[in-house]
Amino acid sequence: MVSPCLLYYVLFKYLPIFGIVISFKDYNLYRGIWASHWVGFRYYHMFLQNPDFWPILRNTILLGAYKLLFGFPVPVAIALFMNELKHAAFKRFVQTASYLPHFISNVVVASMVVLFLSPSSGLVNRILASLGIPAVNFLVDPGWFRTIYVASDIWQHFGWETIIFLAALTAIDPVLYEAADIDGANRARKLVHVTLPGIMPAVMIVLILNVGKVLEIGFEKVYLLSNPATYGTSDIISTYVYRVGLTSSNFSYATAIDLMTGVVSLVFLLSANYLSRKFSENSLW
């Protein structure tokens, strides 16, 4: 049963690691990897000295940080809310309706966002018009891009992540709630002293994993929602790698950027795990 999963990781995660060698070479498609000339850390220096380095890094970190700051608490709060629901049918409906968007492709989600935010016929601008507010062209305003991306990402994925915390809630011993009732604790006190401590290990593990993915912003939705007018806030590492790697065929440069991103993400993950183990005694290892 485990072998298909292991095969997937071997074929698509471990074997491609060999390709990072081209980041240290002046890779030529016709010569091949081994026949291409070694250039050492030239492409790493090139990216660090690139005038676009800091804007791209800032955009990536801010987008990832906003996603973590505003997106992470939502599934925790929804799980706690659903745990308090007593009507089983309504609870199942809310759970199903909330995680269905997770299975919608990013292309469809981006198309829905474009339709809803259309300056002429979009639902949002129609509501604004009914309130006497002039139409806003959200998709060409750099100031709105991060809000649009984070909000659409929360809507798309919060239901799926809620399942993790609902599973953690079911593992809490009911005897603890019975003891709290005997002590006269109300719902708020049971939430603070029983429920939250009970799911805290799961919360910290998911938080550590999300911190490690701050720089790994999904390429598809950013690429589909961005345009040259919003590059000031929407141009991130993955879209830049796409342009220099596939569009400009500079594979060595793109690989060097991607490897640097992976190393920084590893540092974030290790740091978050260390701090969590030190202050909360919950960690990945």
Rank of each mutant, 00 (worst) to 15 (best):
V74K: 11
I154N: 02
F165Y: 00
K67V: 08
K67I: 07
A151G: 11
I127A: 15
L80E: 02
L123K: 10
A88H: 12
L169V: 04
W54E: 03
I56T: 00
V140H: 02
I104D: 11
A129D: 12
H157L: 10
V113N: 01
Y66W: 13
P119L: 03
K91G: 06
S152H: 03
V136K: 14
I78G: 09
T60M: 01
S120Q: 09
V113H: 06
V124Y: 05
N83T: 05
A79P: 03
A180R: 06
F138C: 11
T60P: 00
L63M: 15
S152A: 01
A79K: 02
P101Q: 04
I154F: 01
T96L: 05
L128F: 01
P101C: 09
N59G: 02
A89H: 14
Y99K: 12
Y149A: 05
A79C: 02
S120Y: 01
W54H: 07
S152L: 04
K67L: 11
W54G: 06
F93C: 07
Y99L: 08
V94H: 09
L69C: 09
T162V: 07
V114W: 11
L68Y: 04
F116K: 08
A167I: 09
I104S: 09
I56Q: 04
A77N: 04
G143W: 02
E178R: 13
W155Y: 07
I163S: 04
T170F: 07
S98C: 00
I61G: 03
A88C: 10
I164Q: 09
L117D: 04
R126A: 14
P73V: 06
V94P: 03
D183Y: 12
N125W: 12
D153N: 11
L85F: 02
S98H: 05
N137H: 14
G122S: 10
V124N: 02
